[in-house]
Computed example of a mutant assay.
Amino acid sequence: MTGIFLTFISSSMVTLETHLRQSGEKQADFAVRVNVRQGTVSKLCRGQMIPSMMLAQRIERATGGKVPVAIWVSGETVDQAAISPPPPNLEHPHENAPTST
């Protein structure tokens, strides 16, 4: 069964890219603080990479909770199965038949 999982994100939570822009901190400096390369921070900011749980926790601590672990698991990714029409009900085909008006 396909379900939809929604996570509430507080208005005080921001993406890593937004946090760095608002704080004025450079990616290279932030990378040193969380013990990764600047290229990793760049990929995280562009959404080309999802951090490991350990890195997400380091990011949360380094940003004082402004970029929480939850933001990585509840991002803007859309599950196609969640928006596609359900498959036909093969057990009860009459439920799939169009209704006449």
Rank of each mutant, 00 (worst) to 15 (best):
T2C: 00
G3A: 14
G3R: 15
I4F: 06
L6V: 14
L6E: 08
T7C: 09
F8Y: 13
F8L: 09
I9L: 12
I9K: 06
S10G: 04
S10E: 15
S11D: 14
S11Y: 02
S12W: 01
M13T: 12
V14L: 08
V14P: 05
V14Q: 13
E17S: 11
E17Y: 04
E17H: 03
T18V: 09
H19D: 10
R21H: 11
Q22L: 10
Q22P: 00
S23A: 07
G24R: 04
Q27W: 00
Q27G: 05
Q27K: 09
A28R: 12
A28Q: 15
A28K: 14
N35F: 08
V36E: 12
V36T: 14
V36N: 06
R37V: 11
Q38C: 11
Q38P: 10
G39R: 11
T40R: 07
K43N: 09
L44F: 09
L44K: 03
L44N: 06
C45A: 07
C45R: 04
G47E: 05
G47C: 06
Q48S: 00
M49C: 05
M49K: 14
M49E: 14
S52E: 10
M53G: 15
M54Q: 15
L55A: 02
L55H: 00
L55V: 01
A56V: 03
R58K: 14
R58Y: 06
R58L: 10
R58T: 03
I59A: 02
E60I: 08
R61D: 07
A62D: 06
A62E: 08
A62M: 02
G64H: 08
G64F: 04
G64P: 02
G64R: 02
G65A: 05
V69W: 10
V69E: 11
W72I: 04
W72L: 01
V73K: 04
S74K: 01
G75A: 13
G75H: 12
E76R: 10
T77I: 13
V78C: 03
V78E: 12
Q80L: 15
Q80P: 11
Q80G: 05
A81W: 04
I83L: 07
S84Q: 13
S84M: 14
P85M: 11
P86K: 11
P87M: 01
P87Y: 08
N89E: 14
N89T: 08
L90D: 14
E91L: 13
P93D: 07
H94C: 09
H94Y: 13
H94V: 12
E95L: 15
E95P: 00
A97G: 01
A97M: 07
T99R: 15
T101Q: 07
T101Y: 09
T101L: 13
